[in-house]
């Protein structure tokens, strides 16, 4: 029994940042990177299933990313996952969610997992594409924004809840194997223990190239091309400046005026 969890290293911008010379991305000097928030929940969900089954499931973490992405992979491994796979090739530098899904599809064929989890979206680009594109490529059952899951490793079906708008949830059963995108709040992700972090450094990680997966650069062509990236025109926010006491005094004035106090 095996659960494959795809994780991403998300990028966050420094308070001040500059665009790259070609104007199509932010200059890489201005990034902070970390495991995508949603992936803490998908890794946790896989670990809970593994533990409930008395360890009778292997949890494999897959990431598409350069050496930098090793950190995110180890963060996931430190929570108790068994091993990792990292795929990289310079041709992946402009990969979008669909390109990443094409790589993951090859990994799924190779690993034959019983279940695949992704995060519902990434905290940086938030396309909500990768998981369900993967399902489309595989022709597997799929559900997005899963906020509750009842699944035993190897079972032919799972029962889940999809989180809809306004706090409503839909209960559905789904045939397995399936690809599920996992929503925030489905569980309470654990922090890695010191022991876990130490062990993560020793855990086996397969490093694969596109070639190893039988993919060429043409196979991972993006589904959209970035023309340019730019800072949005900032709205009209009038900045309240001064010391905290002065700022609060002005805010109190605004409140009292608007509330007729």
């Amino acid at each position: 029994m095996k659960i494959l969890v795809a994780v991403k290293q998300a990028a966050f911008l420094d308070d001040e940042f500059e665009m790259r010379a070609d104007g199509r991305d932010v200059d890489a000097d201005f990034f902070e990177k970390d495991l995508n928030e949603f992936d803490h929940f998908s890794v946790e969900e896989a670990m809970l299933i593994k533990e409930a089954a008395g360890d009778a499931a292997e949890v494999v973490i897959a990431i598409v990313g350069d050496e930098d992405a090793d950190d995110a992979l180890r963060t996931a491994l430190a929570k108790g996952a068994d091993r990792g796979i990292r795929v990289w090739d310079d041709a992946l530098a402009e990969a979008d969610g669909v390109a990443v899904a094409r790589v993951l599809a090859r990994l799924v064929e190779r690993e034959q997992p019983d279940m695949v989890f992704t995060g519902a979206q990434s905290a940086d680009f938030g396309s909500a594409v990768t998981g369900m594109a993967l399902a489309g490529l595989l022709g597997w059952p799929h559900a997005a924004v899963v906020c509750n899951l009842d699944y035993t490793p190897g079972a032919k079906t799972a029962t889940l809840r999809r989180e809809l708008e306004g706090g409503l949830e839909e209960i559905m059963t789904i045939r397995c194997p399936a690809v599920l995108s996992i929503q925030l709040g489905i569980n309470q992700p654990r922090y890695a223990s010191l022991r876990g972090i130490k062990q993560a450094k020793q855990k086996p990680v397969d490093e694969l190239s596109l070639d190893d997966l039988g993919l060429s650069a043409a196979d991972i062509a993006p589904v959209a091309r970035v023309r340019k990236m730019y800072a949005p025109e900032r709205g009209k926010a009038e900045l309240i400046t001064g010391s905290a006491a002065e700022q609060a005094a002005r805010l109190a004035e605004i409140i009292k005026e608007l509330r007729g106090m």
Binding site: G97, V98, A101, A120, G126, S127, A128, V129, T130, G131, M132, A133, A135, G136, L137, H142, A143, A144, V145, R162, E163, L164, E165, S181, V223, A224
Partner: peptide, 23 residues
């Protein structure tokens, strides 16, 4: 870009091989 589309749009796009942008 509602929750239902999150399930079907990317899968439909790869089956079609079309261009895709979300949100």
């Amino acid at each position: 870009h509602g929750v239902d589309a999150w399930s079907f749009a990317p899968a439909a796009a790869v089956k079609l091989g079309c261009g895709l942008a979300t949100d």
